[in-house]
Design a protein around this nucleic acid. Structure first.
Lengths: 397, 397
DNA sequence: TGTCAATAAATCAATTTCGTTGATTTATAG
DNA sequence: CTATAAATCAACGAAATTGATTTATTGACA
């Protein structure tokens, strides 16, 4: 039975849905006792008790924390995510670096391998991913290997539009190539959407259910979160904020990107944030122009989607990111904005690691989060929640 | 128990969800036999049989159609929406007219009352709505009155920003005022979103699950449909395409609206489409400028949300609307659009009646459509499908 | 042209899954 | 030692599933 069709609901689907919702609540709120879960979900304590028992048996939750005493009554026993509950590989394809990370169920990066390159090439990155994944797998126990859920890839789209050197990417399907060799499920999404998903899944700040996200690196991208779900779009190209049109017949990435800054400098910027040294005049010019286009794009997105928050992150020093947030917020306030409420603008919390983390979050989202947390495009004309199967420990298979 | 919290799933919710999905499938696809429903939903024929039996008993579906023979086997018995299954009132607040319509479950307008005005005033519209609703109710049978689900209001937001004459709207809550007097549930949403919802619910053309919608009347608005659901936004202001920023420090409604056309003409346009008489130079100028801003806004929205389709409708003659569609499509093709796929541009199918129909669709969506078809904003941090209660016929209450 | 097997829709009966309700156990504050 | 609240146990009800049965049509063969 195809899982991509508009689906009716079934009792089994109910269980899977509730399991995933519990994991999501704990992921966003930190360790929670069963009573709080029942309260948050509107289910009975008994139901939560049954579901959590299975999740603990499946190795996804950990009840070994300290009982929290304080109020009258039996003390609360907070349930935490079990870090070893599942493991994920994340591959980031960047303009200057490829990265492969191993991330655990709690969102910690356990291992990282890096491949620098003059330009990314699909053959080189495929070989790097295969070799590095092999090394990482070799270092895992049998039990850990059984709990590896798959690999996610965060890659820019339309790479061949950037430069002649990236023509080899045209027509390549890195996802399929790696899925075949690695013998595990592989996902691939736009790098901006991945970074956004990482902020939602692993970010340390409270986030509203709806926000717009920009990620400024060598090129500019973004992501869209609606109702607590990362929106990928019917052709997987949602959140393409780098392509957003701005006045002057240009697009956001023509102005607000690190490559533009490097072009103004006349040389590449170092990978080490602390070593960035920017002349004030060039910096101000870039900040000013970038803030203009970011605020234009942000206001357009707010008009269409009513975002209360815009998050800006990127591969740049914290200080520069903060200045960009400030400049964008100020530019937004100066724009004509009748009929819309201006959003808050805020910096992201993950910086350079956002894309690789987001890549690893793809199998996590697909397997362990409520349906559509990383919303897959569904063919067919009618929208309906796709329900997931109940979660089982790898041992059961 | 608050229904606006992130909710776990329950068996009862499952039934309600499936009931609504069946109604939605039939609404969009036309009469369907049980076997096709089971196929489309991924449920067993038995489940569909049970659910449809109840929906027929509740008076929402009609099994009285002709059996369709042709293939081997027992002929198909298509189930259709029962027009008398429910009735809805829709109130449109417009710049020149207020309209109150009575719409049946199949989407047919059964009655309509109109109030012309120099400017809309909340007191006058309230009185008009109360009086007209009373007259309409008086003409219904007792059974029909029992099946009246409520009233929806389609109103522009921030009315007081348009003109000094509309200052009385500030701070008014027409929804609450009417809900109190009319003794029925009342909804109110932005008129652009309502028009978009009408296209989705009652439009005669096939629509994809995701599209952007513009509605050009005295002012310009719009709507957003994602995954087959009308998106209202966390503060109910999604789809505010009239406020979309365009080059030159302006917004869409500063350029692409009938009021701009009237200003250029120097006089108001008649309510009768056939009586519109526009000098070619003024028409061309308006079409050209409007297409530019519409295509800019559309391309921005496509970058953010990956829409495959843009629908343009409005209170104007079919011919003018077609010309605007054509001009916008052409302007879109001329824009720089690296990294995004250009959407199809198409005319809406409802024209002047879109907003009133969409108003009536608000109680329909709230009561009889899958959760979030007209997505209500949900407070709280974690997104989850809100499940509806099973549908019961009014007689059961 | 008439009869009958094949086919597919729709329903009947029995079973399983899952959440709920009400009673019970456990551990802490005061 | 009592009140309180978390968590579990046992019985119940709602909804979907599976497998068998009924119903009505097509199409082939006599």
């Amino acid at each position: 039975m195809p899982t991509t069709m508009p689906a009716g609901s079934t009792p089994q689907g109910v269980r899977g849905q509730n399991e995933r919702l519990i994991l999501w609540l704990i992921r966003r709120n930190g360790p929670m006792p069963r009573a709080a879960l029942a309260q948050a979900m509107g289910l009975s304590a008994q139901a939560v008790s049954n579901i959590t028992r299975e999740l603990i048996a499946a190795g996804l939750l950990d009840a070994g924390g300290e009982r929290r005493r304080g109020k009258v009554g039996q003390p609360l026993l907070p349930l935490a995510l079990a870090p070893e509950g599942a493991l994920f590989l994340g591959l980031k394809v960047g303009r200057r670096l490829a990265e492969l990370v191993l991330v655990d169920f709690a969102g910690q990066i356990r291992q990282m391998r890096v491949l620098p390159h003059a330009f990314p090439h699909p053959d080189a990155i495929r070989d790097f991913a295969i070799a590095s994944a092999g090394e990482i797998l070799a270092g895992l126990t049998e039990a850990q290997r059984a709990r590896l859920s798959g690999m996610g890839i965060a890659s820019p789209f339309y790479l061949w539009d950037w430069a002649r050197e990236m023509e080899p990417w045209r027509g390549r399907d890195l996802r399929a190539e790696l899925a075949e060799v690695l013998d595990m499920p592989v996902w691939l999404e736009n790098d901006g959407s991945c970074a956004c998903g990482a902020e939602m899944m692993f970010g340390t700040a409270e986030l509203p259910e709806n926000f717009l996200y920009f990620y400024i690196a060598h090129f500019a991208g973004g992501g869209v979160v609606l109702d607590g779900r990362l929106r990928l779009g019917p052709s997987r190209n949602a959140g393409a904020m780098g392509s957003f049109p701005v006045p002057g017949g240009r697009q956001v990435l023509d102005v607000a990107s690190v490559s533009v800054l490097e072009a103004a400098l006349g040389h590449d910027l170092p990978l080490d944030d602390a070593a960035w040294d920017l002349p004030p005049d060039i910096l101000c010019e870039w900040l000013d122009k970038s803030a203009q286009v970011l605020s234009h794009a942000a206001l357009g997105a707010v008009a269409a989607l009513d975002f209360p928050l815009v998050v800006i992150d990127g591969a740049m020093p914290d200080k520069l990111r903060a200045a960009l947030v400030e400049a964008t917020s100020a530019s937004l306030a100066r724009m004509r904005h009748h009929g819309v409420t201006l959003p808050e603008v805020r910096a992201g919390t993950l910086g350079r690691s956002a894309r690789a983390l987001g890549a690893a979050a793809l199998p996590l989202g697909a397997g362990f989060m409520p349906g559509g947390t990383f919303s897959a495009p569904r063919p067919g004309r009618i929208g309906q929640e796709t329900q997931g199967a109940p979660l089982r420990s790898p041992d059961d298979r």
